[in-house]
């Protein structure tokens, strides 16, 4: 076997392997649409997305997922409010301030946090955090938006922190040196030079962290309480879309209206995460040249 043929075989093997993942994705999307679209014969797209009543098994059923969409958005936004500052600031500390020994430990711990199975976090939220929350604030229920957001924030922090950290490392040394040379303090350098030049990477990190939170299932299923109503305060229960799909799919009769409605909810979720990813991609492309300017 000549080197030439070997090279060719390897090349094609890699092509097939990468095509497989592409095919898998295409098949999943096709399946999602095939199973979800039939619901729109029973209910219009407008009534599905903006309808406020979710009673898929009543007769006649009502398939309005507005409360579920609102639930998803509320927990995602609130968890981002917690996770974004924590994630970014810990990234800044790790990449710019921490001494080498602390850096190693912190990085390892954050990676460990990323590897924590979501069901473990969900269980912790349900059994430890929720009862504590309920007793401390004397609430009717501990399974609410606030606890769910807190748990989701814990899941989003590693994503935000590690991607922002990469972005901070990518800031050219010359920028820092120039800043110090002009007499800037360390804080001024971080706040006015390093963070602004890593901003595209940090934005990507935030958006990917949010995408992680909106798609997360187990934690919201276990901790958000699951009420399919519009929340009135952050201590009300909500049912985000992934929780609704996970809880109901198991027993929805095969190819019934309810089954199709759950897949259609999946389509909505798919478009939301797709939008997040496109925005992240756009930002990282748009501002790419700015970061590594020609100095």
């Amino acid at each position: 076997m000549t080197r030439h043929i070997k090279e060719k075989i390897i090349k094609n093997l890699f092509l097939v392997l990468s095509l497989i993942s592409l095919m898998v994705l295409a098949l999943i999307v096709m399946f999602l649409f095939r199973e979800g679209l039939p619901i729109f014969r029973e209910v219009s797209v407008y009534d599905f997305i903006f309808g406020s009543e979710w009673y898929p098994t009543s007769s006649p059923p009502s398939y309005g997922i507005a409360p579920l969409i609102v639930g998803s958005i509320v927990v995602t936004v609130l968890s981002s409010l917690i996770a974004v500052p924590l994630g970014i600031l810990s990234a800044v500390y790790i990449s710019e301030i921490a001494p080498a020994s602390a850096k190693e430990i912190l990085k390892a711990v954050i990676e460990l946090l990323a590897g924590l199975p979501s069901v473990v976090l969900g269980f912790f939220g349900m059994v430890v955090l929720a009862p504590w929350f309920q007793d401390t604030f004397d609430l009717p229920t501990g399974l609410n938006i606030a606890t769910a957001s807190l748990m989701l924030a814990i899941m989003a922090i590693p994503t935000i922190s590690s991607i922002s950290e990469d972005a901070l490392y990518a800031v050219p040394r010359e920028f820092k040196e120039a800043s110090y040379a002009l007499g800037a303090t360390k804080f001024e350098t971080i706040a006015r030079v390093i963070i602004p030049s890593a901003l595209s990477g940090i934005s990507t990190a935030v958006i990917l962290g949010m995408a992680r939170a909106i798609g997360e299932t187990m934690v919201v299923l276990m901790v958000a309480g699951g009420a399919a109503a519009f929340p009135e305060s952050i201590f009300d229960s909500v049912r985000p879309m992934p929780a609704s799909i996970a809880a109901e799919m198991g027993e929805a009769p095969f190819r019934s209206g309810h089954y199709h409605a759950l897949f259609a909810t999946g389509i909505v979720l798919f478009f939301m995460t797709l939008a997040f990813n496109l925005v992240a991609d756009y930002i990282s492309r748009r501002f790419k040249e700015v970061g590594s300017a020609t100095l």
Partner: peptide, 15 residues
């Protein structure tokens, strides 16, 4: 609609 939802008998016992 304000009713909370749990996905299993065990989860209801827990809550």
């Amino acid at each position: 609609p304000k009713a909370q939802l749990q996905a299993s008998n065990g989860a209801i016992v827990q809550v």
